[in-house]
C-alpha cells in the first residue's frame, strides 16, 4: 500500500493535512497524538498585524456541520515566525504549510516574503477566500482578475510553491482557478467555507455576532467534490481538496475527483483523533477499492 503523494516536488507520506484554522499551531493536538503521522499540516491563517477577530458568539451548530465567524484571529506574521514556528518544530518534524491572509495585495506579498525565509515552511497557501472579514479576504478570491493579481504578487516574492485557496462563494470557481494558474500558481486549494447564517429564535436575532459565518463539515462535502472536479478539469496544477472530509472514503472520493492531497477541517474540532483515524483506515479502504498506489487515482473519475 503506497499512500505517498507529491505536491510541487514535496513528497508527503500520506495525503492527510489538517486544514488551517482547525488545528491552531498543532499544540492542542500534540496532546492527543504524535503529529508526525500526518502528511503535513496547515498553520492558522496569518496576517501582517495581530488580529483578535470577531466578537462572540462566533460558533454555531448546523445540520451536519457548523458555522464559524472567527475572523482570522492570529498573532501576526512576526509572532508566528518568531514564537510559533520554533514551537511547531518541537512537535512536527516535516515541512508545514503556511496559510496567509491579507487585506491588500501588498499585505499578501509582505507576509509571503516573510514566510519565504522559513525553512520549515514547505508550501504557502494563500487564503483569498475568508468569508468572515469585511474587507479583503474573500473579495480577492471571487473575482478572476484580483485572484490573478494576488497570485502574481505573491509569486514574485517567494520561491516556495504557492497554492491559492479558493472560495466556493463564487459563480465560476473554475475561472478563478484558471486565473491563478495563469498567474503562476503552483497549485489550488479548495474549498473554503460557504457563507451561512443562523438565528437565535429566543432573541429573534442572528446567532453569530458577525451575523454571517462560514459553513463547514459533512454538509458541504458534495459541494467540495463538485468544485474539485470542476477545477481539476480547468487546470493542470495539483489540487488540495477539502470541505467536509470526515473519513478515509471521503479522501478517496476527493482524490478521484481530482485532488492530490486532502485537508481535514471541521472534523478535527468534533474529534481530535479525526486525522489519525483517517490515516489508520486508509490502507483498508484502499484495499477495498483495489487501490495499490494512492497517487494513481488522482482525478481518475473526472477525466473527460
Amino acid at each position: 500500500m503506497d499512500t505517498k503523494i507529491t505536491l510541487s516536488g514535496l513528497t508527503l507520506d500520506n495525503p492527510i493535512i489538517p486544514a488551517s484554522g482547525t488545528f491552531g499551531f498543532g499544540r492542542e493536538f500534540a496532546a492527543f497524538y504524535d503529529l508526525d503521522i500526518l502528511g503535513s499540516f496547515c498553520l492558522k491563517g496569518t496576517t501582517r498585524e495581530p488580529r483578535y477577530g470577531n466578537p462572540l458568539p462566533r460558533i454555531a451548530e448546523c445540520p451536519s456541520g457548523m458555522l464559524n465567524a472567527v475572523g482570522l484571529q492570529n498573532p501576526g506574521v512576526d509572532a508566528v515566525i518568531e514564537q510559533e514556528l520554533p514551537e511547531v518544530a518541537k512537535i512536527f518534524r516535516k515541512p508545514v504549510i503556511a496559510n496567509i491572509s491579507g487585506f491588500s495585495i501588498d499585505e499578501y506579498a509582505e507576509v509571503a516574503a516573510k514566510f519565504d525565509a522559513c525553512a520549515q515552511v514547505g508550501i504557502l497557501e494563500i487564503n483569498i477566500s475568508c468569508p468572515n472579514v469585511h474587507a479583503g479576504g474573500m473579495a480577492f478570491g471571487t473575482d478572476p482578475k484580483s485572484a490573478f493579481e494576488v497570485t502574481q504578487a505573491v509569486k514574485k516574492v517567494t520561491r516556495k510553491p504557492v497554492y491559492m485557496k479558493l472560495s466556493p462563494n463564487t459563480a465560476d470557481i473554475a475561472r478563478v482557478a484558471k486565473a491563478c494558474e495563469d498567474a503562476g500558481a503552483d497549485g489550488i486549494s479548495l474549498i473554503n467555507t460557504l457563507l451561512g447564517m443562523r438565528l437565535d429564535l429566543r432573541k429573534r436575532r442572528p446567532l453569530l455576532a458577525n451575523v454571517t459565518g462560514g459553513l463547514s463539515g459533512p454538509a458541504v462535502f458534495p459541494i467540495a467534490v463538485r468544485m474539485v472536479c470542476q477545477v481539476a478539469r480547468a487546470v493542470r496544477v495539483p489540487i488540495i481538496g477539502m470541505g467536509g472530509v470526515s473519513c478515509a472514503r471521503d479522501v478517496i472520493e476527493l482524490m478521484m475527483a481530482g485532488a492530490t492531497a486532502v485537508e481535514v477541517g471541521a472534523a478535527n474540532l468534533r474529534d481530535p483523533y479525526a486525522c489519525p483515524k483517517i490515516i489508520e483506515a486508509l490502507p483498508d479502504v484502499m484495499r477495498e477499492y483495489q487501490i495499490e498506489k494512492l497517487s494513481d487515482i488522482i482525478g481518475c473519475a473526472v477525466k473527460e
Partner: peptide, 17 residues
C-alpha cells in the same frame, strides 16, 4: 460560558478579550 467549537483550544471560536 461560551459557544465553543472544539473545547480544547484549537479553533479559537470562544476567545474573548
Amino acid at each position: 460560558e461560551a459557544r465553543m467549537g472544539c473545547g480544547f483550544g484549537a479553533c479559537v471560536g470562544c476567545t474573548c478579550r
